[in-house]
């Protein structure tokens, strides 16, 4: 009688490992990470009210900026806008859904870079 098969699910590690993929996979991981940072901060803020280590607040602001900007892309694309219509694939096939939404991603990343710079400058000025 054969023994049981070996479990081979990657687990949470699969968010950032598990193969070489495009920029969307990295955006996916960052989105989850920043989401967790924001939730963690919210809970910590409720439990512990009072003066906070300042750089922690900067991290939360940066996480929020990325999460909001990438979130705009996800809201648009996840409702089926801009991913293209079903077509007959020709080979070598480049995934249309990724190619078509990539400009939107980079535009929003440019915006988040601007906001991040503004946030860091404001933080350095002691705002």
């Amino acid at each position: 009688m054969a023994k049981k098969a070996r479990p081979n699910r990657i687990g949470v590690k699969g968010w950032w490992t598990g193969g070489k993929y495009g920029v969307e996979k990295k955006a996916y991981f960052l989105h989850r990470l920043t989401g967790l940072i924001i939730v963690f901060y919210l809970i910590a803020h409720i439990i512990h009210q009072g003066p906070w280590i300042a750089w922690w607040e900067l991290i939360v602001v940066l996480a929020f900026i990325y999460h909001a900007m990438n979130g705009i892309r996800l809201i648009i694309t996840e409702l089926g806008f801009g991913v293209g219509r079903p077509t007959l694939p020709s080979f070598p096939y480049v995934p249309e859904s990724l190619v078509k939404t990539r400009p939107l991603f980079w535009i929003l990343m440019a915006f988040s870079a601007i906001y991040i710079v503004l946030a860091i400058v404001g933080f350095a000025k002691g705002g």
Binding site: G19, E24, L74, P86, Y93, P95, E96
Partner: peptide
């Protein structure tokens, strides 16, 4: 699904599952 796009990158038949899933979400909404 949060649109990591890895599925579409590896599909050997050009199915583009990421596209189908986003269109499905739109349809359900």
């Amino acid at each position: 699904c949060h649109y990591a796009g890895a599925c579409s990158e590896v599909c050997p038949k050009g199915v583009d599952p990421a596209k189908a899933i986003q269109l499905l979400k739109g349809l359900i909404l």
